[in-house]
Nucleic acid binder design. Structure first.
Lengths: 197, 197
DNA sequence: ATTTAACCGGAGGGTGCCTCCGATTTACCG
DNA sequence: CGGTAAATCGGAGGCACCCTCCGGTTAAAT
């Protein structure tokens, strides 16, 4: 009945070592070649066979989710920093920016996240972090709405989509100037109309 | 010196027939499976070998560009309809909506278009339609700016990016409601701030 | 040292991309 | 209408990647 039941046998040492090596190699490949990188290349660089990779991470999404976990925690940390800000509008803006950076970490990251969002597939390991991001965005949105900064009809999901859009555009190699402008466009859009800038 | 030089020999009949059959099969596959569909499957459905397909269309972009051509002309037609509208703001809105529909015709279409936009690769057959779309958008934008409807800093390229974003989001399977809202967000963004809605 | 369960890793089947080149078809010409 | 040559066809084949399966190996427990 305990949380761990009987764990029977101590887990083997090589399991954890291989897992860590794989995550490390995967992160490098995702950074360099985007989330569509060859998984066989990842396995080779980690010095294991393809079978080992697929046993540890049955799908590309599982591997991506595991690699993302550390970044997700980092994002939550940044969230704590933001929470200190009393101006709800600034807090929302900074959160959106932080989320956009998170979504731009690897080229092609928005696609699988959107796919996980679409179908509420509980087997997709990316559903959990997505829902967290959306829920957190919703908190910031509601806080900013209470101060009259954001239109009432806007939800966390909407701004999550907007952040995905901007991150996706960034990943396609558009100029930094035009990405800035698109972000500004969106920002003007969710604000209350009487807020001049 | 004439435009056609000497054409030497009349082009073979099977060439044009195969080309038409390939375009037809490709359009159906793009509609059903998106622009990433298997080109071998297209060739098989057209009843030709892979070699024939690749001789007619050396790259996926070439095939896509050829399939897109009819839709591009249709878009220009719609543009003529829009041109009759004297209200520049309505004209811009309708043009953006038409372009968004065009970009959503096949799943995954925005990616290769953005790739063609990024690097001004004259070999990429998608560069031409992209530049046309951007230039036309610019015309509508400038017209709307003269009536004070749109912020002066906005350009056709910016709104082309915005349309690509919305089309991409649409292709990921987000709910229609949220796509509508994202579009509204963008619309609120490019308008002059004193324009209340 | 032996047992045994878990894990490793590569061979292998499947799919898709793209490129050749021998066979075929078509237009041209006498 | 038949012959000729050029252009085209189409599939075989090399390459890369995905994913699975199973005999051999390793590490924990006794």
């Amino acid at each position: 009945m305990s949380a761990k039941e009987q764990q029977g046998r101590k887990p083997r040492a090589d399991v954890q070592r291989n897992r860590a090596t794989l995550l490390d190699a995967a992160q490098r490949h995702f950074l360099r070649d985007g989330v569509g990188t060859s998984l066989e290349a990842v396995a080779k660089e980690a010095g294991v066979g393809p079978g080992t990779l697929y046993r540890h991470f049955p799908t590309r999404e599982a591997l991506l989710s595991a690699v993302l976990q550390s970044r997700t925690e980092e994002l939550v940390t940044r969230r704590a920093d933001i929470a200190g800000i009393d101006d709800a509008s600034t807090a929302l803006t900074q959160w959106l920016r932080a989320m956009e950076d998170y979504l731009s970490a690897y080229n092609g990251l928005p696609e699988p996240l959107m796919a996980a969002t679409r179908a509420q597939d509980p087997d997709n390991p990316l559903t959990v972090p997505c829902d967290e991001l959306i829920a957190t965005t919703g908190e910031y949105v509601r806080a900013a709405q209470r101060t009259g900064y954001v239109r009432p009809s806007v939800t966390g999901y909407h701004l999550f989509l907007a952040a995905c859009s901007v991150a996706w555009i960034k990943g396609t190699g558009a100029t930094g100037e035009s990405v800035d402008r698109l972000r500004a466009l969106v920002a003007h859009g969710y604000r209350e109309p009487d807020d001049r800038t």
